[in-house]
Amino acid sequence: MKEARYTAPETLDEAVALLASANGSGRVLAGGTDLLVQMRAGTAKPGLIVDVKKIPEMTTITEKDGSYRIGAAVSGAVIGEHEGLRKAWPGIVEAVNLIGSTQVQGRASAGGNLCNASPAADSVPAMVAAGAMVTIQGPKGRREIPAEKVNAGPGRTTLAPGEIVVSFTLPVRPRNSGDAYLRLIPRTEMDIAVVGCGVSLTMDGDRCTAARVSLGAVAPTVLLVEDAGKALVGSTLDDGALEAAAAACRAACKPIDDKRGTIVYRTKIAGVLLKRAAAIAAERARSH
């Protein structure tokens, strides 16, 4: 039996070098709430484990001129207790905090959730709706790409060998902005999204001036639904605009029938959640 080698470097350069030298058998360990489960199930058999929790840049939240940067390995519990984030990005916080249970929250991270590349990841639609930029470091240096560009399909990312997701950078929040994330699960917790929907809005009085909508679990990757955002911008979020955005969401769905939901049900719920999430985001925008 081949044993996995465990390392815990203290710098990103070191981590990238280790990962790059593993010839594709390396895996990044943040909270481990996906990786360790996969190893137990025998679906992941890494030769090298690179624990990134000793790298300061990956485990801290910083704020600069109203823009937040969240280290990719920051746990859900830490994000949930961050006053600034809770005020500026309640949708992101609630999405991250929906992952697993209270115990899992002590370990699970937004970076891990993104790199696990599940179409049903809860934090990803919220990050995409927020317009989060993802900082990636690899053997060829640093780059930044939008959150929606990281996943390539179920379990697959666009990361090159040796690349590590370092952090999420959230844009400066204009006044009267709000975001929300809703997911549908048959139970009330400890479940995987049948559909997830993130909405981020900016309001000017009753009128919506900016909107981004994202859907999870309805396609091979989390989707940014630009048409849904467009349907909301310029409107007062009246029934007509909400129905148009819901229709855009339904049109964007390319789901599968599986043990967690049917094509028909997922498509319908995408529209339902859009309306409900938009209402919550709008309420937050008005009171922000």
Binding site: R187, M190, D191, K259
Partner: peptide, 16 residues
């Protein structure tokens, strides 16, 4: 069997 675990074989959780 496609759901041999408590994640997808859904018994109620306390909060339900």
């Amino acid at each position: 069997l496609d759901n041999p675990g408590f994640l997808d074989y859904r018994i109620p959780v306390a909060s339900d």
